[in-house]
Amino acid sequence: MSVQPGQLVGVEPYVASIGDIGVTRHWVMTPRGPAPLAGSEWWIADRGAWSQQIPVWAIILAIVFFPLGLLFLLCKETKWSGWLEVTVRSGALVHTAVLPLPSYEAQNAHAAVDRIRALAAEAGRA
């Protein structure tokens, strides 16, 4: 079953959403248009990384207590930053949603993709 441009898709409530991708029981809704959920393929890629930097407070204390304060420059903060990419392919439709890290939505993205994969498998059997 394919959707032609301009064809209306039945109104169904979203059962899941990730970024700008919405999922109903039978359809994947993206800014590029709808596509059938049955047979859709989902990927999630973690593009995050740990980074270390000298915190601002350590730089200020190093200046205030110079020269002994230079020891404060040995302090490091470790932060996790980056993004997640969630890609869906259904027929001719391919769309990627980018989720910044850290965010509430990104934390739950792996579980949501697993749930959507199960819905897609269930829709394919129906």
Rank of each mutant, 00 (worst) to 15 (best):
S2I: 14
P5S: 09
G6I: 08
Q7T: 12
Q7F: 07
Q7E: 13
Q7W: 06
G10W: 08
G10P: 10
E12G: 07
P13H: 12
Y14M: 13
Y14A: 15
Y14Q: 12
Y14R: 14
Y14P: 06
V15C: 11
S17D: 06
S17A: 13
G19I: 03
G22V: 08
V23F: 13
R25Q: 11
H26G: 06
H26L: 08
W27F: 14
W27N: 06
W27A: 07
V28M: 07
T30F: 03
R32I: 00
R32Q: 05
R32P: 00
R32G: 06
A35I: 05
A35D: 03
P36M: 14
L37Q: 11
A38I: 09
G39I: 11
S40A: 15
S40N: 11
S40K: 10
S40Y: 08
W43R: 13
I44A: 04
A45Q: 13
D46G: 10
D46K: 12
R47S: 05
G48P: 06
A49P: 07
A49F: 13
W50V: 12
W50H: 15
S51P: 08
Q52A: 13
P55H: 07
W57Q: 07
W57H: 07
W57L: 07
I59S: 02
I59Q: 03
I60V: 12
L61W: 03
L61R: 01
A62V: 02
I63A: 11
V64G: 03
F65T: 03
F65V: 03
F65E: 04
F65R: 02
P67Q: 08
L68C: 01
G69R: 00
G69P: 01
G69T: 01
G69A: 01
G69M: 02
L70N: 05
L71C: 06
F72W: 03
L73D: 09
L73T: 06
C75F: 04
C75K: 01
C75T: 02
K76P: 13
E77N: 06
E77T: 09
E77A: 06
W80S: 02
G82S: 02
E85K: 04
V86G: 01
V86Y: 00
T87C: 02
V88N: 00
R89W: 00
S90G: 05
G91D: 05
L93N: 01
H95Q: 01
A97C: 04
A97N: 02
V98Q: 03
V98W: 00
V98N: 02
L99K: 04
P100A: 11
P100H: 11
P100Q: 10
L101H: 09
L101I: 13
S103H: 09
Y104I: 14
E105L: 10
A106N: 05
A106Q: 05
A106S: 13
Q107M: 14
N108G: 15
A111Y: 11
A111Q: 14
V113A: 02
R115P: 02
I116M: 10
A118N: 13
L119E: 11
A120Q: 05
A123H: 08
A123I: 00
A123G: 04
G124W: 10
G124H: 13
A126N: 10
A126K: 08
A126C: 04
